[in-house]
Design a binder for these strands. Structure first.
Lengths: 369, 369
DNA sequence: CTGTTAGCGCGTTCAC
DNA sequence: GTGAACGCGCTAACAG
């Protein structure tokens, strides 16, 4: 978004001038706080307080105000409130992609958590571009949000400074860190990768490889953990590590597996940085007539709904995406709530190994923070 | 969202009182239009006009104002603008589900289309509940949006009235109708279902069934078209039509296929109302050792990315979800733009039969509006 | 616990 | 083509 596009207001048209009356949804004789106050026999500010800090208003006044609100169908004007209080009820949500299936569960958690709240979500898609993420953070912050939720912990230096000085709670998600900007909820990508390495090793695979695409910081951490896990037993072999900066997809999983076999034909297992890639790898393995899991093992990541239903069911790592979405909003609400002085600022979740049919099953369930 | 929750303002906390100075993102000495005007040697209103209706300001003034905007890093205050103009730049987006993979592509189209626009998206998830959809429409309309995008054409009577009287453009999506509320973009669900019926019949299947879940109005239209297509050749058999109101998923596809075979073991093909169901059906067919497509055909709907990579590749109907998302925003922008008097109010898109390996391939590509 | 006063930053209206 | 005055609906700060 360029600076000028920001001020290039599109609301110029004169679309259906005039005012509607149906259901009191209109601007001209909209019900205002004044109307409510008058109906309740108090001043506007008292009505305002009754709605925002009920404890600070006498019970009698409060009751009359609430009933006036109901009767008149009063709905607060968010714009006026934002202008007067220098704070909107918007929570900015910065995501690297809208295509990724992981995103849907995360988003569902977020939306479930804002239900019955006056919070509102505004999504920014930065398409895995750190500079775009930075500029979106700047844009969002200009809107005086109630909170900001970002993906991961690898913002640019400038972005990180803005987040640290942001006049609202900030939540980093999907990863852990010892130096969070503010709040944080996630699981260790690195430990998850290590867990996968152990699983494959325990299952008896000795020439394990890797398939990775889009290589965002979290995928990289996962992969670093995986390779470190292999290294401790002398099984890390760079020839078997196939990655591409291109987007991740099922089709890409098939291609990368072909590349892997071209580079190292004796590879006997593969960790795919996500389930899309893993599904593509499994399909490709089937096309090649490989015996999965006996002679070739496949492990995915995220454990999407479909994974457990594939033939054979895909071994994967279940990640708490939905919980992270919910938790991120909870952290913001807690920060906004003056009563909750001692709410945690950090939530560590678990990623769980789901050993299934695409790896020799060793019946161990493992967990990574 | 209850009436009271609407006025239950969560912005009560006193989170980090004080003002930040980094990057001019702050409230106290925020750069305002006045600052810009002063720097440019004009009045505030002229600066305001220069940004919104550049043509109405002299070239000299305009140039000075723009350069002041750049130099000062002015960012308009959305709340103040909304309050003064009684119109926000928010476009409300009502979706029935956040889980559905179809949603991701649609959303991506929407977000791509608002890029370099000052429009902003606000998503409402009504979870396939018409009454919730109605209340969300009411809530959104109270916010004076720039536009509203809804899914399908089957709103409640009250919702429909609100939409017709809405003081902003409204776009119905994903389906066509002869009585649109206002703008509309989509393809015919009914014709798509008919197309699938023809495809299966042409491929030589004679005992075709159906798997459906979640049964929202669009799925129902699809299915009605399918059954009508079967009926014309005397092949519609209610025993083979298996549906459930439960959510759609890959796992559900497997279950429903089992149900279908329990009810009508000689079924030789199945239309699945979406690709998740179809993937589950294919996996289940594999588990049962059915020969697909020779003795059993499977056709999905939507043509997700993974479908073409399955083994065998899934026959499906490609739906223009991304285009619908983009087009919905385009319709709204056109409606908002006073210059575009004769922009279309209706866009008919095509759904395309993608015949692949799960049905006997008859090499005919078909298209449904 | 309640009210008064004074804006928040911008756009509309109507002059010039 | 430009500007002055006013108000959008609400809330912060203070006084009572």
């Amino acid at each position: 978004m360029t600076a000028l596009s920001l001020v290039n207001n599109p609301i110029g048209g004169d679309w259906r001038r005039g005012w509607i009356v149906y259901d009191n949804i209109m601007a001209r004789n909209r019900i205002t706080l004044d109307d409510v106050a008058r109906a309740a026999g108090v001043s506007a500010i008292t009505a305002s307080r009754a709605l925002r800090q009920p404890a600070k208003v006498s019970e009698r006044a409060r009751a009359r105000i609430f009933s006036a609100v109901q009767k008149l169908g009063y709905v607060p004007d968010a714009a006026a409130s934002a202008l007067a209080s220098t704070r909107t009820s918007v929570v900015g949500l910065l995501v690297p992609s809208l295509t990724n299936a992981v995103f849907a569960d995360f988003l569902r958690g977020v939306y479930d958590a804002i239900e019955d709240t006056s919070l509102t979500i505004q999504i920014g898609n930065f398409r895995y571009s750190p500079s775009k993420e930075e500029s979106l953070i700047r844009t969002f912050l200009h809107q005086r949000p109630s909170g900001l939720i970002v993906a991961g912990v690898d913002q640019t230096e400038a972005a990180r400074r803005m987040l640290m000085e942001a006049p609202c709670p900030v939540v980093q998600t999907m990863e852990l860190s010892d130096q969070p900007v503010d709040r944080i909820i996630g699981f260790s990508q690195y430990a998850s990768g290590e867990m996968v390495a152990r699983h494959l090793i325990d299952a008896g695979y000795r020439r394990p490889g890797l398939l990775g695409a889009r290589m965002d910081p979290r995928a990289q951490a996962r992969i670093a953990g995986y390779r470190s896990g292999l290294r401790t037993v002398g099984l890390d072999d760079a020839r078997r590590m196939i990655t591409t900066p291109q987007p991740s997809s099922v089709g890409m999983g098939g291609q990368l597996l072909a590349d892997l076999f071209a580079a190292a034909p004796d590879t006997d297992a593969v960790f795919c940085a996500n389930d899309d890639l893993a599904a593509g790898a499994l399909f490709e393995a089937q096309r090649r007539g490989l015996r999965v899991p006996e002679s070739f093992g496949i492990c995915g990541f995220n454990d999407l709904e479909m994974s457990r239903h594939m033939v054979p069911p895909l071994t994967s790592v279940a990640t708490p995406r939905y919980e992270i979405g919910r938790g991120a909003i909870d952290l913001i609400r807690a920060a906004l709530d003056p009563l909750s002085g001692e709410m945690p600022k950090r939530i560590e979740l678990d990623a769980v190994m789901s050993a299934r049919g695409t790896t020799r099953n060793n019946k161990n369930e493992r967990t990574a923070r």
